[in-house]
């Protein structure tokens, strides 16, 4: 058994009166690539925000890298691309370089400035998402998909051990998406980075993920990919409320 990167036990969360997450139990081991699926409003983003400490669950415990989330301090070990990344203030006067470099903030620590090696890391992350031509352009001048790539670079720059991605490829063209999934595969296999990816397009990544979790307020399924593939389509249909296509892919 590998090291536990994320361990969620009996988690309940409510924004207002109703629980949007009920009795969630998840454990993710080092090196896993978890695909998190579920219909709109099923609580996927909410669950991720709980893991990131942005929301405080009413009940239950979360452990990150073996440490209780209340004691956890190594936030630079976690990279995050939020679902709403491109709803930021789009006229913000910052260059791609500045935005990606801001991902290094916690790693550098207070009062410290970037060194040459840090700049090189920033450039590396920008190259990894293929945005090197726009380094000195303002982020607001880029298209939505290009901005999304920059946010992915920002999450990669601190060399996280756990990468949390909430529908990161929305608005990104299919060629870049493929490139991106290859990059994730590489990060996962070669660098042993643990990944959590929310997507509505599980069919596109079934050959990359190691585990799948199906969420709709409760966790309907959480297991490795083989178990998932054996799941009857009817069970997923009852989860989504309508038939879903799984492995076969007809768009593109």
């Amino acid at each position: 058994m590998g090291e536990k990167i994320v361990e969620v036990k009996n988690l309940f969360f409510q924004y207002e009166r109703k629980y949007v997450l009920e009795n969630i139990n998840i454990s993710i081991e080092k090196g896993a690539f978890l695909g998190l699926v579920g219909p709109n409003g099923s609580g996927k983003s909410t669950l991720l925000k709980c893991l990131l400490g942005l929301l405080k669950p009413q009940k239950g415990t979360i452990h990150l890298f073996g440490e209780d989330i209340h004691q956890f301090n190594d936030w630079h070990k976690i990279g995050y691309v939020s679902q709403k990344a491109n709803s930021f203030n789009s006229s913000f006067p910052a260059t791609v370089f500045e935005v990606v470099a801001s991902g290094l903030t916690p790693k550098l620590g207070l009062f410290k400035k970037m060194k040459k090696a840090d700049r090189e890391k920033v450039m590396e992350a920008i190259r990894a998402v293929g945005m090197e031509k726009a380094v000195h352009q303002n982020i607001g001048e880029l298209s939505g998909g290009q901005q999304q790539r920059v946010f992915i670079a920002r999450a990669l720059v601190s060399e996280p051990k756990l990468l949390i991605l909430d529908e990161p490829t929305v608005g990104v063209d299919s060629q870049t998406v493929n490139h991106f999934y290859q990059l994730l595969h590489h990060l996962n296999k070669e660098l042993e980075i643990t990944l959590i990816l929310v997507t509505h397009d599980i069919g596109a990544i079934t050959d990359k993920v190691t585990h799948v979790a199906c969420l709709n307020k409760q966790l309907y399924f959480h297991g490795n990919k083989d178990e998932f593939e054996r799941l009857k389509e009817t069970e997923l249909t009852s989860l989504y409320g309508h038939p879903v296509q799984l492995i076969t892919h007809d768009h593109e």
């Binding site: 990131l52 400490g53 942005l54 936030w75 939020s82 913000f92 910052a94 935005v99 801001s102 903030t105």
Partner: peptide
């Protein structure tokens, strides 16, 4: 630039 991200980074 991004208040949520700032919080997510601790």
């Amino acid at each position: 630039f991004d208040e949520e991200y700032a919080s997510a980074l601790g």
